[in-house]
Simulated assay, not measured.
Amino acid sequence: MSQVFLTAVLHAVLFLNCQSSTVDSNPPAKRKLVWADEFDKPGLPDTKKWKYDVGGHGFGNNELQYYLASRPENARVENGLLVIEARKEKHENREYTSAKLITKGIAEWKYGRIEVRAKLPSGRGTWPAIWMLGSNISHTRWPLCGEIDIMEHVGFDENVVHGSLHTDDYNHVKGTQKSGRLTVPNATADFNVYAVEWTADRLDFLINDQRFYSVTKADLGAKESQWPLDQPYYLILNLAVGGNWGGQKGVDETIWPRRLEIDYVRVYQ
């Protein structure tokens, strides 16, 4: 009698656990790969998929690098990886060079899963980012266009990875940005997959398929100033030096060059 009862209880617990696991996992709908770069052709980044943002004006954050175009010292494909390299070398008004790759005008997406497998640079003063901007920035202003930060990392706080949404009402200038963070013990030593899953009413931030932060239209509001995500966005990959956040604790001038290494970029819808 006791054995039968215990067996029944065990079966009930296992059933409930399985049901709970199914509900909690919230598996995404099946998606199709619509765009990718596997970085399997050595040389400069593929100009059919990427172009460059160029300049040394600080990019709104008092960054210290000058972004250059079509220069293998700063952006190249080697050994199956995209390497974005920041170097300590003077160019015009800046003491560092680097690269900022964008898909603007080439590939832009509305909704889907955007994922990037990357290894982040270590060192005080490094500020790598994988992020997106609303394509309407060409005829409006930031942050009304919206900004999705899939991954940001600052070298003085090693292995703490941030995901954020900036809008006109919620942004870092006002101190109202919507952000989450996760400690990834091997972020600078190994490759990890950084992703967002984006629907009409929700944005989930994930690392290695672990969801660590979410925002919803219901929570933020449906106005354009609150939720500007119902439009195409383009992707940006860059490695900044110093700046308002990356340089909060100074820049170690002895560590350069430093590399952001990317294994692949994949977009599913």
Rank of each mutant, 00 (worst) to 15 (best):
G58W: 07
P232S: 12
L237E: 05
M151T: 10
V23Q: 13
D252I: 00
D149C: 07
V13P: 08
Q19P: 03
G125K: 00
V54H: 02
E89L: 04
E89W: 06
G125C: 05
A99F: 01
S122Y: 05
P28R: 11
K110Q: 15
I130R: 03
L82C: 02
A8H: 10
V161I: 15
F59L: 12
G246C: 03
G246R: 00
Y213F: 15
V215D: 03
A118C: 00
F59V: 11
D149V: 07
F156G: 04
R202T: 14
Q226T: 08
N159F: 01
G246H: 03
R124A: 07
K178G: 07
A99D: 00
I148N: 12
D168F: 12
N171E: 09
D53E: 15
S20P: 01
V196E: 08
R141T: 15
L44Y: 11
N136W: 12
A8L: 14
A99G: 00
R266C: 04
L182S: 07
L220E: 05
P228Y: 05
N26C: 12
L68A: 14
N238T: 02
S2D: 13
V265D: 07
L133A: 13
S20G: 06
Q231V: 11
L260A: 06
D209E: 15
V13A: 13
Y67W: 05
E152R: 04
G55C: 04
K41C: 10
V77E: 06
Q269L: 04
Y194S: 01
S70M: 13
L120S: 01
I255G: 04
L68Y: 10
G242L: 05
W256C: 02
Q177E: 15
N136L: 10
D209N: 15
G163L: 02
N62F: 12
V173N: 11
A195Y: 01
R141P: 08
V173W: 10
D204W: 00
S135M: 00
K41G: 06
I207Y: 02
V77M: 06
E158P: 05
